[in-house]
Simulated scan of single mutants.
Amino acid sequence: MTTSRPGVNLVPIHGKVPQIHETAFIAPGTTIVGDVTVGAGSSIWYNCVLRADVSSIVIGERTNVQDGSVLHCDGPSPQYPEGCPLIIGDDVLIGHMAMVHGCIIEDRGFVGLGAIAMNRAVIASDAMLAAGAMLTEGKVMGERELWGGRPARKMRDLDDMAVMGMKLGVAHYAENAKHHADAVAQAIANGAT
C-alpha cells in the first residue's frame, strides 16, 4: 500500500490515513480523506472526492470510480449505531459524477452517470443503477436487475448481453488506467503538473 501520489490530495484525519494499493491508478486532482482503502488494479479518475472522516470507505480490486464522483459514508447515529460505511466490491463501475453514500455495491455492480445511491442501499452483483437514478435509503437491488428513476425502482432483469457489456467496461477502464498512469508520469517528468 502506498500513501503518496503526485497531484493527489491525501488527507489523514482522526489517525486514519488513506491506504492505496501500489497498482491502483489515482488521477491528479482527486482528494482522498481518512479511512479509505483502494484495492489492486482499481482506478479513481480525475477530480473525484472520497471522504471517510466519520466511517470507512473500502474499494475492492479492478473497480473504477469515474471523473467527478463523490463517495462518502455516515458515522454512528441513533438509527444506525454502527454507522454506514461505504463498501464497494471488485470489478465495479461507477459512472461520471455519481454520488454514492454509505451503501454497499457488490462485485460487478454498476452505477450509471450522475446516479445517487444512499445510506444502507444495496446494489447487488451484476445489477445496474441507471444513469440519473436515485436509489433511496435502505433499498435493495437484486442480482442482474436494472433500476431507474427518482426514486429508483426495478425496471427489468438484465440479459447476458448487458452483463457482458459491464464486464467489458471493467476491462476497458483497467487497461485505460494504465495508459493514463503512463501519461501522468510523463507529464510529471516534463514538469507539466
Results as ranks from 00 to 15, higher is better:
132 G>V: 00
42 S>I: 00
120 R>E: 03
55 S>L: 06
68 G>D: 09
72 H>L: 04
47 N>W: 05
167 K>A: 12
167 K>M: 09
157 D>E: 14
121 A>G: 12
81 P>H: 06
176 N>G: 12
186 Q>C: 12
64 N>E: 10
100 V>G: 03
145 E>F: 03
84 C>S: 14
6 P>K: 11
185 A>E: 12
8 V>P: 07
174 A>W: 13
98 A>P: 08
51 R>A: 07
117 A>S: 13
21 H>P: 07
49 V>N: 05
45 W>M: 01
179 H>D: 09
171 A>L: 10
82 E>D: 15
40 A>E: 15
38 V>Q: 04
102 G>V: 01
166 M>H: 11
125 S>T: 15
129 L>D: 00
68 G>E: 14
87 I>R: 08
33 V>N: 03
192 A>P: 02
154 K>V: 08
132 G>C: 01
104 I>E: 12
68 G>Q: 11
87 I>E: 02
106 E>D: 12
40 A>W: 01
45 W>D: 00
137 E>D: 11
104 I>N: 07
184 V>A: 01
150 R>W: 05
105 I>L: 15
33 V>K: 05
83 G>P: 13
118 M>D: 00
172 H>N: 15
16 K>G: 06
82 E>W: 12
25 F>Y: 14
142 G>R: 07
45 W>T: 01
154 K>I: 09
165 G>L: 10
189 A>F: 03
74 D>A: 02
43 S>C: 03
73 C>Q: 14
118 M>Y: 02
85 P>A: 11
53 D>P: 11
125 S>Y: 02
126 D>K: 03
51 R>P: 14
183 A>Q: 13
47 N>E: 07
74 D>N: 03
15 G>M: 13
130 A>F: 07
80 Y>S: 14
192 A>K: 13
1 M>R: 13
29 G>V: 01
38 V>Y: 04
22 E>N: 08
105 I>E: 13
49 V>E: 02
98 A>F: 06
7 G>T: 07
9 N>M: 15
92 V>Q: 04
188 I>Q: 11
80 Y>W: 12
109 G>V: 04
47 N>L: 12
61 E>S: 02
166 M>S: 10
163 V>P: 11
110 F>D: 04
22 E>V: 04
107 D>G: 10
43 S>I: 01
161 M>R: 14
55 S>G: 10
110 F>A: 05
126 D>T: 09
31 T>L: 07
53 D>T: 09
132 G>N: 01
89 G>Q: 05
102 G>W: 00
86 L>F: 11
174 A>G: 15
98 A>W: 03
158 L>Y: 04
169 G>T: 02
25 F>E: 04
36 V>P: 11
89 G>E: 09
163 V>T: 05
113 L>Q: 01
186 Q>G: 14
60 G>C: 10
128 M>L: 15
29 G>Q: 05
184 V>G: 03
85 P>L: 14
137 E>R: 12
159 D>C: 09
105 I>W: 04
155 M>F: 08
97 M>P: 02
74 D>R: 03
169 G>Y: 04
99 M>Q: 07
150 R>P: 02
30 T>Y: 05
126 D>A: 05
136 T>N: 12
127 A>Q: 10
58 V>E: 11
37 T>Q: 12
69 S>F: 04
178 K>E: 15
123 I>S: 00
123 I>L: 00
122 V>L: 15
179 H>C: 05
87 I>K: 08
20 I>Y: 04
155 M>S: 05
160 D>M: 08
26 I>F: 02
